[in-house]
Write a protein that binds this DNA or RNA. Structure first.
Length: 109
DNA sequence: ACGGTGACGTCTG
DNA sequence: ACAGACGCCACCG
């Protein structure tokens, strides 16, 4: 199926732009988009994104830095993916999340 | 057609 | 400081 214009296409674009070893939060993306969506929409966008290989949804965590959606990934697959990129994850939580945080509204401008 | 729910976030009490 | 409620949009039953 050709790339049909999804309502969260902007979300995919931002997530795809996330640098390796970096993580962002749903609210940050929603805020970057202008809050026109809402943090929950970003979450749902990731849900569909998880079906896309081009969208590293595992780099997206909640504001707490916790891998909230790891259940949807199918277990520890999300944590493994993050650690594979150099992101330390412990107790389903990103270590030094504040330092690993990547804000599109700041870094991407 | 309608209501409930959801990988969240922010405000108010 | 902590707890509870509300708001955003989309999908599913």
């Amino acid at each position: 199926m050709p790339p049909k214009p999804n309502p969260f296409d902007d979300v995919y674009d931002v997530v795809k732009l996330i640098p390796p070893g970096r993580v962002t939060s749903y609210g940050a993306i929603a805020r970057y988009l202008g809050s026109k969506g809402g943090a929950r929409l970003v979450g749902w966008a990731m849900n569909a994104a998880h079906a896309m290989d081009d969208v590293p949804a595992h780099r997206v965590v909640n504001r707490n830095g916790v891998l909230t959606g790891k259940h949807h990934f199918g277990g520890n697959r999300m944590q493994e993916a993050l650690e594979a990129e150099g992101v330390a994850v412990e107790n389903d939580q990103v270590v030094d999340f504040k330092n690993r945080f990547w804000d599109p509204a700041v870094e991407l401008v």
